[in-house]
Design a protein around this nucleic acid. Sequence first.
DNA 1: GCGACAG
DNA 2: ATCTTGTCGC
Length: 229
Amino acid sequence: MIDYNTLTVPEATIIQKELKDSVKITPYNGPLNYVAGADISFNKFSTTVYAGIVMLEFPSLKPVGYSLVKKEVLFPYVPGFLAFREVPALLDAWAQLPVKPDILVVDGHGIAHPRRMGIASHFGVLTQQPSIGSAKKKLFGVYEEPGIEKGSYTPLTDKQGLQLGNVLRSKSKVAPIFVSPGHLIDIPGSTAVLMQCIKGYRLPEPTRLAHNAVNQFRTNIISEGWTSL
DNA sequence: GCGACAG
DNA sequence: ATCTTGTCGC
């Protein structure tokens, strides 16, 4: 496998264009008993990243365990190339899972990306697993502000009108989240699954719990490895 | 040239 | 992303 730490942005762009052909946006008809959330945490100015994947039971959304891994990363954060910075560590956390989830929710975008290769799509293709991107801010596309009530959403499209995802009001009166399919699932399915992952907070449980876990890991409250709850 | 810009 | 206290609205 290619070492992302030694890549230049132009080289990374070529890789995204190649991986793009492998992304499959299609309805997900498999089982849905487990979902997982992936996220990264790090100390400002440090090259050490703390990656984590939390497994949850679906539809109860009760966490059943988490995989935590620490890794050195040299690739900088560049808008549009987040995957090259976070995917390596997430792959380690993924490999450490005793059982894989049916669908993985990644903190970041899926196909709502300049080259349709956001981190959720990138990770989904490399692992050949259904994935959904859930981002807190827009990276690419245009949209109309959704209604202020929880549950309302509007399409996120490119300038030609092609839909890439949805802008979802996950909680009344708070900023919406951006949902887009990563791999092996479509836009309606991604939106439906994410809506079922909302439990009173702005962020869906998978990534919300993953975010909490990696932060506790970074601050030495919990340790590396796989832990069953 | 100017504005936008996931985490 | 991370660093932070108080403050506003439901």
